[in-house]
Structures are given as C-alpha cells and as structure tokens.
Amino acid sequence: MTEHQRLELLRAIETEPLVDHAELAVRLGVEAGEVGAELASLEEAGVIKGYRALIDWDRLQTGAVHAFVDVHVNPEAEAGFDAIARRIARFEEVHSLHLVSGGRDLLVVVRGQDFKEVALFVAEKLAPIQGVTRTTTSFVLRTYKTEGTALLSATEDTRLAIAP
C-alpha cells in the first residue's frame, strides 16, 4: 500500500468505520485482503485507537451533558504540564484534555449525565487538584457541528436530475 493509499484508508475509516472492506479495497485500488491487513497493522502501531459512532445526543431525552472547562495551572518544575494533565486525564468524567495556547493552560471537556453532576465534578474533583489555580466552566447548550459534521438538518440535493 502506498503512503497516499494509507492516508486515504485512514480518511475513509475515520468517517465510515463500518465500511465494507472489499468495497474499500476497490475504492483505493488495492487487493481485497490488503485493507484488513493494513488496518490491523495500523491498530497494532497505535495509529488507529478505535472505531466510533457519531451521535447527536441532543436528539435524545436523556443524553449526555458536556462542558468545556478552562483550567489554569502552575506547571511543576520538572514535569511541566504533563504530570498535572495525567492526574486530570485519569478521571472517567474527562472526555478530552488538551494543552492549549491563549489565556488558559488546559482545555478539559467534561462529560456527565446532567449539569449538576458536571458542575460538582469540577468543584469537587478538578478544582482541588494540586497545581490547579482557577477553572471556568462553559456548558454546551447545543452542538451545531462536531467532528467536521454539521448536526443541523441535512441540505437537499437541488441539482437537476439530468444535466449536460
């Protein structure tokens, strides 16, 4: 598989994890067995971490609540931000965690069943962590676009059915 084909494979699998491997082989112009073998080796190498569904939780009554939490920290002398990031990442409530540029140090996405659960997690677990100096919590009220996919109503195909 060429580097170009490998990138195309990853791009495809990122948006269509359930795609039929035989079809993907045709689309990439490789032998039928190559897709499975390449995916296995990319999983082995840790490039592919998993396969997931993209869910619009807002469409359910009992969805999940997400909050973006800005975290300011005093980095440690030796370990910098990594040690404190590791401590934060251990919590199951932490959905994602990034070291970012700008007015705060860490951007933490916290996920919970409801607002109270998330707020209490920040107050009782995140804020007291040694080195954390300040937190600001922004609850997600509505998601318009995520992972490159707009969650608004789909746009119609307005093209003429036959055109030169």
Binding site: D157, R159, L160, A161, I162, A163, P164
Partner: peptide
C-alpha cells in the same frame, strides 16, 4: 437515483 448530472454533488 440520478447518475445523470453533469455537476458536482
């Protein structure tokens, strides 16, 4: 299902 169009989707 149209495969008859001459423009991008």
């Amino acid at each position: 299902i149209s495969l008859g169009v001459g423009e991008p989707d």
